[in-house]
């Protein structure tokens, strides 16, 4: 399984755990990720506020490079995926847009090369059975909440799962042996984009989600979006100072897969979270009474 791989800037910085775990897990699962040479920023979070065409041209250049190599693009970051999918749809639906974009980026891009969310590749192309087959350390006894955020589920035309009740992460986590709890905040916005401009509004949104997570009795949250991850992980300290203890680790789905496949948590960068995340892994294999499961 060959895919062009677009890590994007998050995975090089705040989402370094996602990068490390994605590469490790993909290798184990036989997914060949070929990093797009000379990739550029996809423009997420800023370009579309600046101008329509620049917001399309930036991801289009990356997609065009992949298309020249004849590969679909695997994108772990939900924001990069959303922007890249948007341009793919734009060029396939409008000949006019295609011509304009090709003119700006100075190379052809026809939309033949598809933007694929990494989670979608794991769930649909590879399938949960193939993942299950690689599990050596089932995540038994771990109660998880899956969190998709807004960028994986909205707008509907780019979503790769049920927009109201997505299930891909649930399926993957169940395959890893974890107990997936139901909650109503799977697709709620975490307020990540408001942390700089309207911090209190953003913090309130994060609080709602973390409150629900606390109430649910889950051990941790599993996500596939580096924006949501850094926001939920980083803001808990702020929340704790204002509203009392918040201490729920937030993992990337690939980190969890790596753990279940028997990898060293440090190799997956699980030691680099804001909320201490290594000790929670100790619950794996234990029943709630403390005995061996």
């Amino acid at each position: 399984m060959d895919y062009a791989y677009y890590p994007g800037c998050s995975l090089e910085s705040t989402g370094i755990e996602f990068h490390a775990s994605t590469k490790a897990v993909a290798k184990e699962l036989g997914i060949n990720l070929i990093e797009i040479p000379d990739w550029n920023c996809c423009g997420a979070s800023s370009a579309h506020a600046r101008g329509h065409w620049i917001s399309l041209a930036l991801p289009a250049r990356n997609m065009a490079i992949a298309e020249a190599a004849g590969l679909d693009v695997a994108i772990p970051c939900a924001a990069c995926y959303a922007r890249s999918k948007k341009v793919e749809l734009e060029v396939t639906e409008s000949e006019e847009a295609k011509e304009k974009i090709e003119e700006i980026i100075g190379r052809p891009y026809t939309g033949k090369s598809k933007a694929r969310n990494l989670t979608e590749i794991l769930h649909n192309d590879l399938g949960v059975d193939a993942i299950k087959a690689k599990v050596v350390k089932p995540l038994k006894g771990l109660k998880v909440l899956t969190y998709y955020g807004c960028l994986m589920s909205r707008p509907p035309e780019i979503a790769c799962d049920d927009i109201e009740d997505p299930i891909m992460l649930d399926d993957i986590m169940t395959a890893l042996g974890a107990e997936v709890l139901q909650w109503g905040f799977k697709t709620e916005c975490c307020g990540g984009s408001l942390t700089a401009c309207r911090p209190q509004v953003g913090l309130d949104m994060t609080k709602k989600i973390m409150d629900a997570a606390k109430k649910s009795g889950a051990d941790c949250i599993v996500t596939a979006c580096p924006m949501c991850h850094s926001n939920l992980d980083m803001r808990q300290d702020q929340l704790s100072k204002k509203y009392g203890a918040y201490n729920i680790p937030v993992y990337f789905v690939t980190e969890m897969m790596g753990v279940a496949m028997g990898m060293n948590p440090k190799d997956l960068c699980i030691n680099r979270h804001f909320v201490e995340a290594e000790s929670t892994l100790g619950k794996i294999g234990k029943t709630s009474e403390g005995g061996e499961a």
Binding site: Q182, W183, G184
Partner: peptide
């Protein structure tokens, strides 16, 4: 827009 469980209640 949404119905979800919170404790025993549905929000």
């Amino acid at each position: 827009s949404k119905i979800y469980q919170e404790g025993e209640q549905l929000i």
